[in-house]
Design a protein around this nucleic acid. Sequence first.
DNA 1: AAATATGTATTAACCTCTTAATACACACCA
DNA 2: TGGTGTGTATTAAGAGGTTAATACATATTT
Lengths: 129, 129
Amino acid sequence: MDVKFNNRDPVYIQVIRHFKEKIATGGYEPGQEIPSRRELANNLKINPNTAQRAYKEMEEEGLIFTEGNLPSRITNDPEVIRNVRKELILEAVHSFVASVQSINVPLEEALHLVKENYQRNKNEQEESL
Amino acid sequence: MDVKFNNRDPVYIQVIRHFKEKIATGGYEPGQEIPSRRELANNLKINPNTAQRAYKEMEEEGLIFTEGNLPSRITNDPEVIRNVRKELILEAVHSFVASVQSINVPLEEALHLVKENYQRNKNEQEESL
DNA sequence: AAATATGTATTAACCTCTTAATACACACCA
DNA sequence: TGGTGTGTATTAAGAGGTTAATACATATTT
C-alpha cells in the first residue's frame, strides 16, 4: 500500500484513483477485503476522515460495499469492475484527444509521440527492476 | 473571445491555457496586442484581478510583455512561441501515457482508441459548421 | 483641466479541502 | 464482562488558494 500524492488534487480523490487503478488491473479480486478506514489512514499517513470520505464515495459508486461493521470489500459485480477500466481509459483518451485537437496536432504526430513516449517509459520501468 | 470554464481548475489557470492554445495555433501573431485586463475581464465575465493574475503569470513566463501602461502584447521571441506548442503537447502526451500505463493498457489498444476518438471528434466538428 | 483607460498593488472575503476531536452503535474475542 | 476494532456521524477549526473590492499612479485624449 503506497500512494504517491501530488499537491494539485484533493487527497481523497487520489485515494479513489489509486483503488480504481488497482481494481482495473486486477490487483484486487471481487469480494476481497480492503483495509479498514483507520488502517488505511495509518498506512497512508492521512486523516481517518479523509479515508472515510474516499470510501464513502467509492461505496456510492458501487465499487465497494460494507456489511455491518466489518471492513469494506470490493464489489462482486464483474460488470462494475469492467466499467472501472473502461472509464479510466475513456477519460484518459478523451482528455488527450481534446488537448491535442485544441492545438491542432495532426493525428499522426500525436500517435507517434504516444508510441515513442510509451516505449521509453516502458524501458525505464524495466531498467529500474 | 470565448472560453469554456470548468469547475475543477482555477479560472486564471484556464485563462492562461486559453492564451497558450491561441498562441500555439497561430491565433496570435508575435507582438500582437491583447485585450487589457479590464477588457478581458468584461469579455469573460470574470474579476479584473483574476485577469491580472493570469497576465502576470504569462508575463513571468515570457509569453507576453508590457510597456508602460499600455495593453500587453504577445512576445516577439519565436523561440518562446515554438516552446508553447511543444510544452502543451508534451504535457498531454506524458499525462496520457502515465494514465494508460497505470492501468496496463497495451500500446496498440491505446493507439487504436486515440485514432478512433480523434477521427470521431473531427467528424463531429466538421458536421457542426 | 477633466475624463477615461491603462497597469499595478493591497487588503479582505470566500470557498474547498483537510484535519481534528468526539461520539455512537455494533460485533468479536479473551 | 471488558477491551478492542469495526463503520458512521457531527461539529469545528485550520490552511491554502481564489476571487473580490478598492485604491493609486500614469498616460492619453478631449
